[in-house]
């Protein structure tokens, strides 16, 4: 798709002092692709996203991003002293783009409200509108739905997926929710101790449904790989996540 940016990482490493958080990562993301990065906490997935976002610099290797990205964080990070419309305007080129972005996330009538009166899900919708208002070629998502309740999260996943299919931007999603990764992405990358441990292609046609057998099987497989090697031995069937 022509609307998306491409990302290229070649032997990228990142160290904080002596601690090597990312080790020799090579990865190419095509324009318009939806890639999810999963892994245990501390595996380096957030650092990878922050590198691509330009919030951190690489220690070694080559990183090329073909266009300026927009970001969504786990917390909405709305300016509490600005109304919803003004918050979206922060990422918007024009008032018309602000209004249409708010309409797309279903909050057209809330532009005069302060963030304090919104629910967690509504705040994330505003953050999504702010990120998409300038029609960016690349959207970076750092566990954006992690703090939401299950129902709101499912709703937001559908919204995100619909907007991505409609706009054709490139998306890089960091999440600890394996099922979410499989539901949304074309490709799921599993990071372990700063290295790419596994890559899964998701070929299930969209719209995808939670509970689809293929999705469930892939989610299971990825979970098993994440918990390997130390936990596989005592991985009992009754143990659910």
């Amino acid at each position: 798709m022509a609307n998306g940016a491409s990302i290229q990482l070649n032997g990228v490493s990142k160290a904080f002092g002596d601690r090597r958080v990312l080790d020799d990562i090579s990865l190419t993301i095509a324009p318009g692709e939806f890639v999810a990065v999963v892994g245990k906490s501390g595996c380096g997935k957030s650092t990878l996203l922050r590198l691509v976002a330009g919030l951190e610099t690489t220690t070694e290797g080559m990183l090329a991003v073909s266009a300026a990205p927009r970001l969504m964080f786990q917390d909405a990070r709305l300016l509490p002293w600005k109304r919803v419309g003004e918050n979206v305007a922060l990422g918007s080129p024009s008032p018309a783009a602000t209004a249409s972005a708010l309409a797309q996330v279903g909050l057209a009538d809330r532009d005069r409200d302060f963030p304090a009166v919104l629910s967690g899900g509504q705040k994330q919708r505003v953050a999504l509108a702010r990120a998409l208002a300038s029609a960016p070629p690349l959207l970076l998502l750092d566990e954006p739905l992690g703090a939401l309740d299950a129902l709101t999260r499912a709703e937001m996943q559908t919204l995100l997926s619909d907007l991505w299919r409609e706009r054709g931007f490139t998306a890089l999603l960091v999440t600890h929710d394996i099922e979410e990764a499989v539901l949304l992405a074309d490709r799921v990358i599993l990071l372990d101790a700063g290295r790419i441990a596994y890559t899964a292609l998701v070929t299930v046609p969209r719209p995808r449904r939670r509970g689809n057998a293929e999705i469930a099987a892939l989610t299971d497989e990825l979970l098993t790989r994440i918990l390997a090697p130390q936990a596989v031995a005592d991985f009992a069937p009754s143990f659910t996540i």
Binding site: A53, G54, L55, R70, L71, F73, R77, L79, L90, G91
Partner: peptide, 9 residues
């Protein structure tokens, strides 16, 4: 975090 967000925008 707000400052970081604003800078990113």
């Amino acid at each position: 975090d707000l400052v970081e967000m604003a800078r990113a925008y």
